[in-house]
Nucleic acid binder design. Sequence first.
DNA 1: GTCTATAACTTGATAGAC
DNA 2: GTCTATCAAGTTATAGAC
Lengths: 194, 194
Amino acid sequence: MIPMSDTPKKKEIFEEAAKLFQERGYSAASMRDLADRVNLKASSLYSHIRKKEEILQKICRDQATRFTNAMEEVEKMKNTPSGKVRILLSLHIRTALEDPTSITVFSDEWKHLETDYLHEFLEQRRDYEQRFRQIIQAGISSGEFRPLDPHIILFTLLTGIRWLHHKQRMQTSLSREILENQVVEMLMGGLENK
Amino acid sequence: MIPMSDTPKKKEIFEEAAKLFQERGYSAASMRDLADRVNLKASSLYSHIRKKEEILQKICRDQATRFTNAMEEVEKMKNTPSGKVRILLSLHIRTALEDPTSITVFSDEWKHLETDYLHEFLEQRRDYEQRFRQIIQAGISSGEFRPLDPHIILFTLLTGIRWLHHKQRMQTSLSREILENQVVEMLMGGLENK
DNA sequence: GTCTATAACTTGATAGAC
DNA sequence: GTCTATCAAGTTATAGAC
C-alpha cells in the first residue's frame, strides 16, 4: 500500500480500533474483535497495519501533536496569562467533547505504548506541561493568579476536565457551549485572584 | 481456608495484585506475574482466591464502601453545604495520597468487573454521586455556591483530584498538608460565591 | 487485499501427587 | 498449601493460495 495518503479502509480500521480501545482498554481489545467490526478476518488487518501497537501509537501521536501545535500558537500571542490559560483550557474541553474517543485512548491507554515510542511520548508530555506551567507562573508573578504551586494548578486544571469525554454519563443534556463555559468558569474561578 | 479472617499470605497476594493492576492495568496483569511477586507458582494462587476477578472485586468494593460510609457520616452532620463538601473533598484527597494503589485500581480498572458485580458497583456509585449532588444543590440554593450545574460541579471536583494518586510525577516535594490545602482552596475557590 | 491455515506463545484455571 | 503437569482457549502475527 502506498503510504502517501490513507485508504478509506485503513481509516475505518483506525476509527473502529479507537472505539474498541476506548470501550475495553487496549489490552483487552483483540485483533479479532477489531477485524469483526470492519468485516475482515484478523489476518487481513495486517495488509493495512504492521502491528496492533501501531494503531495506539498513531492515536497518541496525533493528539499529542494537536496540543503541542496549539501551545506553539498560544505562546506567540500577546495575551495575558489568564487569557492564554483560558484558550488552552477551551481547546482541551472542546477536543474532549468533539473527539472523546481519541482523547480517552490518549489519556488512559498511553501506558501500553512500547518502550521506544513511550519515551518520546512522555518527553513530549513533559515539554507541554512545562510550557503550560511557565504561563501559569507568569500569571502568579503578575498577580492575576493566586499564589498556589504551579504543579498543583496545572494538574488540577488538566484532570479537572477529564470527565468530559464520558459525557454520556450526564443525564442533563446541556449544550456544549454551556458545558464549556461553566467548566472554564469554575476552574478559572479557583485560579484567579478576586 | 477459613474465610473468617485473612491469612498473611492472602493479604500479601491482594496487595501485590493491586500494585500490579495499577502498573499494567487489570487485563495486562497476568496471574503468573502476580505469582512471581509473592513467590508462588500461579496454580498455588488458587488455594487463596477463587479467580482473578475476585481480587479486583474486593479492591473496588472496599473503596466504594469507604466512600459510602463517609457520606453516611457527613449527611448526619450539622455543617453547611460548603463545610460538607470540604470534608468529602479532603477525604478523597487524603485517601488518594495514603492509598494511591487501591484508588488507582478503583478509579481506572472497575470497567473490567464482570457483569454481576459491575451492576452493583455502578449502582452504588450512582447513589453516592446523587447524594453528593444534593449537598451541592443545597449550597447553590442557599447562595453559598455559584449557580453552576451540579453535575458539572461534582465531576469537576471529583476528577480534579484524580492526579493525586500519581503524586510520584511531581518534582516538587510538597507536604501532604500543603498539597491538600492548595487543592481544596483551588477547587472550592471556583465553587464558592465571593 | 482477503482468505485459510498455522506458528508460537500466553492466558486463566484445574487435577492430583506430595 | 504448594508443587508439576496440563488443558482449553485465546493472543499477535506470518505464509502462501487465490
